[in-house]
Design a protein around this nucleic acid. Structure first.
Length: 559
RNA sequence: UGGGGUGUGGUGUAAUUGGCAACACAGCAGAUUCUGGUUCUGUUAUUCAGGGUUCAAGUCCUUGCACCCCAACCA
């Protein structure tokens, strides 16, 4: 953290926890949990929740568990359980104990449900979903009580046991809490506690035919685990009275947990909705959940985003109750900051043209010493082969340069990084008019990259010796969604998908030491940006993020 | 239509809880530089609107306005 202040975010959540601790609420304890549903992979939005849940607990000497909210057998799967555990660890967090599962509490939940029935606080409703929904009423309109609302506890118990035994068809009945059909908060109009599903559950198998809803499972799971502060996103705000109501009816031995809501993380040019992300994968718009353009944790990882940068970003943006959308540039600035300090520098030519040094002694190869990371002297130097035939970036030569173009042009002298000064003497182009070869002479006195007479050059360029070059490819990425807020203008998120979000350049030329770059490692291609080595395909690199590019701005300003 | 939540530069987050509106990102200008990178310096720009209380209001009161969430047997 060089250019960022040492902030101690005293947000409203921390303020609350501090006050609770001071008053010794919850016996002076703090315990949180991160409760994903295993029906998809984690994304950048989850990273905010994870950082909050885990950091908050550790800051105040408590613990945080990973708990799978696996109450819906329809969509959940063990592949997601494993994926989530893996992504969480990559981010830098592990569950305080073994990962927990709401499904482990099904029996306790069931017993408590029977208790509510016994006390006349829950009933079995034989109506279908549509009828129940209609009877719920509307905003400003009171609901209508179900004709089954006044069944006796005995009858309810019998029916509920029948439901559990698998004697009832899916959708034929539900268990509902008996609260208040007139309540101004729709959540309290006799919410559904159990639905019938004859579905295989990823953990409990076929043991159950009824499954608890989110509201009935969540707070109770928190209570069972001893959670004190249950953090969730803003849309659950109106569920809080229900969360509290359920807990208040149960014979708990500890203080009931408390739910607190905060604003979810939204980013410009991206979507964070499992459904949308699944569509991108299903429609083949991206190559999978770990496509480097995806905002999933596995996508960002493959793209080369350091976990630490993501964590710092999440900490930095803090937590509030204001719906907002952060500019993705802020996240990228954390990524750059981290990579600038840590990524080894390499020379790679992604759009090669030949540079022939006409006065270079034939068949001679020299090795020049190149700094590995100017930001960290201790990373040392490496030897890179230099010869009379090199590759340089096509963009680094122009026969007819515009103003402020500092790179190679006829008659101009520039520096080849850590090697020699060269002066352009001519060039050749192919039938289409594209420059294919540039000719230059070098000054033997400038070896190492400095002129003994002290003369200066306007630019320094990267290069790769043709005879020693390693071939590979580089994928450049643009925003997956061209609109800042996908769907805001077009009405449909998918209409803002950027069809040119990926540019794959095969035929790149890398310096020999690139062979030492480990799978998954991120390096800086000098002057081009940071690139992550694909974990599976050798010599395929994904551009994590570009360098700040002043020339691009100058160029664009004129267009 | 009822209930709940939220409004601070372009973006996001702060403000000792009534006392000079700050920090970062982005932008602009310059310096340094063997990466048009990094670093450094300077700079532009903010309290949703009206009314009220007060010596003093982003903060308190009041009236509006805008946006978000809630009528799944999803979470």
């Amino acid at each position: 953290m060089t250019n960022r202040p040492e902030t101690f975010n005293e947000d409203f959540v921390r303020e609350m926890v501090r006050a609770d601790l001071a008053r010794a609420t919850f016996g002076g304890r703090i315990q949180t949990r991160f409760p994903p549903e295993p029906n998809g992979y984690l994304h950048i939005g989850h990273a905010k929740a994870i950082t909050l849940d885990f950091e908050l607990a550790s800051e105040f000497g408590g613990i945080c568990n990973l708990r799978f909210d696996d109450t819906n057998p329809d969509t959940e799967d063990t592949v997601f359980v494993e994926g989530i555990i893996e992504d969480l660890e990559w981010l830098g967090y592990t569950s305080a104990g073994e990962p927990l599962y709401a499904s482990d509490y099904f029996e306790q939940l069931y017993e408590w449900a029977e208790l509510l029935i016994t006390r006349g606080l829950a009933y079995v409703d034989d109506q279908d979903a549509e009828t129940i929904s209609q009877q719920r009423g509307g905003y400003g309109q009171p609901g209508v009580e179900s004709p089954f609302r006044n069944r006796t506890p005995e009858e309810n118990l019998d029916l509920f046991r029948l439901m559990r035994a698998g004697e009832c068809a899916e959708g034929s009945r539900v268990l509902r809490a008996r609260i208040d059909m007139q309540h101004e908060n729709m959540q309290l109009r006799d919410p559904v506690m159990y639905r019938i599903r004859h579905e295989h559950h990823h953990r409990t198998g076929d043991a159950w035919h009824i499954y608890p809803t989110y509201d009935w499972a969540h707070g109770q799971s928190d209570a069972i685990e001893g959670v004190t502060h249950s953090l969730c996103t803003l849309e659950f705000d109106s569920h809080r009275p229900l969360y509290d109501w359920y807990l208040s009816q149960l014979p708990l031995t500890m203080d009931a947990p408390r739910q607190t809501e905060f604003a979810r993380l939204e980013l410009t040019h991206t979507v964070t909705s499992k459904r949308r992300l699944a569509t991108l994968v299903a429609d083949g718009i991206v190559d999978g959940w770990d496509d480097p353009r995806m905002p999933t944790l596995r996508g960002l990882r493959r793209r080369g985003y350091p976990a630490e940068a993501i964590r710092e970003f999440c900490t930095y943006i803090g937590v509030s109750r204001t719906n907002s959308r952060h500019q993705i540039e802020l996240l990228e600035s954390f990524v750059r900051q981290h990579l600038n300090a840590n990524a080894p520098r390499k020379m790679a030519v992604t759009n090669p043209i030949k540079l022939v040094i006409t006065n270079w002694p034939a068949d001679t190869v020299e090795y020049v010493e190149v700094v590995n990371n100017p930001e960290r002297e201790s990373d040392g130097t490496r030897q890179v082969p230099f010869s009379g035939e090199l590759f340089i970036e096509a963009e680094d030569f122009m026969a007819e340069p515009p103003p402020k173009y500092f790179r190679l042009t006829p008659g101009r002298e520039v520096r080849l990084r850590s090697a020699y000064f060269v002066t352009c003497t001519g060039y050749e182009h192919d039938a289409d008019g594209n420059v294919s070869t540039v000719f230059a002479t070098y000054d033997p006195e400038t070896r190492g990259g400095n002129a003994p007479d002290g003369r200066k050059v306007k630019s320094t360029m990267h290069w790769v010796s043709a005879a020693h070059a390693i071939s590979g490819s580089a994928a450049f990425y643009d925003r997956l969604f061209s609109a800042e807020v996908p769907g805001a203008e077009t009405g449909d998120v998918m209409d803002d998908v950027n069809s040119n979000s990926k540019t794959l350049l095969a035929g790149c030329k890398f310096e020999p030491s690139m062979l030492d770059v480990a799978p998954g490692e991120v390096v800086q291609f000098e002057r081009l940006g940071y690139f992550a080595h694909d974990p599976r395909e050798s010599m395929l690199f994904h551009r994590t993020v570009g360098l700040r590019d002043e020339w691009a701005r100058v160029k664009d300003a004129k267009n």
